[in-house]
Nucleic acid binder design. Structure first.
Lengths: 212, 212
DNA sequence: CTCTTTACATACATTCATGTATGGATAATG
DNA sequence: CATTATCCATACATGAATGTATGTAAAGAG
């Protein structure tokens, strides 16, 4: 039983993996550190050596995964000067595809959205999500505003309304897939919904019949 | 200290009220029965008299409130033979309005969606939600299918796609409001998003330009 | 007016999870 | 090679939550 520091890093990762699985299966609150340690093949001593407590373990697990919001922000950072609406749809569908093929990220997001109660202790975890949401809203806001300026939006939608509805749609689709992956495929049906919505958003009748 | 059976019913309701508040504030998992009893002004003895354990208390709390899905189903049961899309929008917006004005129901739904981890113990609670979802899907499915048959749907959407997107949008809007009620008003902005979406859904260019 | 049942409060036993303290074996360091 | 720091297992102490058992005062039934 000799542990080089590379070994230590590996057990740390094993603990994080075990936390992912255990949180996903039993929920965060009902997962004891002993459950996680056992799943990782170690004892609570190892867990307490690497992490101060369950909350810090949870945060480390969250930090190891990419939040989709951060992912989207990065994608939107270097986007060419194309049609803003198509850009938005492409980026979201691309993210859907990446998440659907990454089991680990899927588990983490399922934990964050379905297996975890956000109380005062979890304030840090929640704040990170909110921050990511906020900066994402800024990027999306700019794109929808650009679409509005160029007259690309259906008159039923102001830019703000379109952004809010789009955000709700994307979240709803994603959450539904997390809840029942067997009933809905994210990359086909999910992307189809997103693209169809973007299409009708840009299908501005005002361009054809100006003031009927 | 004399308790008539009407008094007993009242303390039972007080316990349920206290459970609502406590679950909402601290989350279900972190709420002990002693917390709830204290909040209700009784002891754990009273709680254990009326409810077998925390899960049963939770289920009783859930049963006392109307799930929005059941609410919607009831509304859709006796709807006239109008435009199906407008009917759908009206019913959803009406539900939004009712929930926004009912603090208790808002709390319960926030618990169900944000403050509760669905593990194996909570299978009953989850099943009830799923059942309600299912029968709601059937009703919505019929309406969207009718809209499709009458050529009222934008060609970008099949009936099934429209239904899925609409469901995701409504859920996303609702969830966003629950998470940040101060950033978004359900009855104004939420209804606006729903109505705008329904409007562009029905804005079928195929009727004007048949085969351009 | 008895007697039983209701509707709790109180007290107790037990389990479970946590946090910490300690020990030990090896790796890293000089 | 001696020393120290790392990495983890084991053991212990504590508190919190649960479930149950018991006590009890009043209500309801006859």
């Amino acid at each position: 039983m000799r542990k080089t520091r590379a070994d230590a890093e590996r057990t740390r990762d094993q603990i994080l993996d075990a936390a992912e699985m255990t949180f996903f299966e039993r929920g965060v609150a009902r997962s004891s550190l002993d459950d996680i340690a056992r799943a990782a093949g170690v004892t609570r001593g190892a867990v307490y050596w690497h992490f101060a407590n369950k909350v810090e373990l949870f945060l480390a697990m969250q930090d190891r995964a990419w939040l989709p919001q951060e992912d989207l922000c990065e994608q939107l950072a270097d986007t060419p000067e194309r049609d803003p609406l198509t850009t938005v749809a492409d980026v979201v569908c691309d993210m859907f595809r990446r998440i659907a093929t990454d089991e680990s990220q899927k588990r983490v997001l399922a934990i964050l959205l379905l297996r975890c109660e956000y109380t005062d202790e979890m304030a840090d975890a929640l704040r990170r999500r909110k921050d990511a949401d906020c900066s994402l809203d800024a990027r999306f806001g700019a794109l929808f505003a650009a679409a509005g300026d160029r007259g690309l939006l259906h008159p039923a939608f102001t830019p703000a309304l379109a952004q809010g509805a789009f955000r709700a749609l994307v979240f709803g689709v994603f959450r539904r897939w997390l809840e029942a992956p067997e009933e809905m495929d994210l990359t086909t049906q999910g992307c189809a919904m997103v693209r169809a919505f973007i299409q009708v958003l840009g299908d501005a009748p005002s361009l054809k019949a100006a003031s009927a």
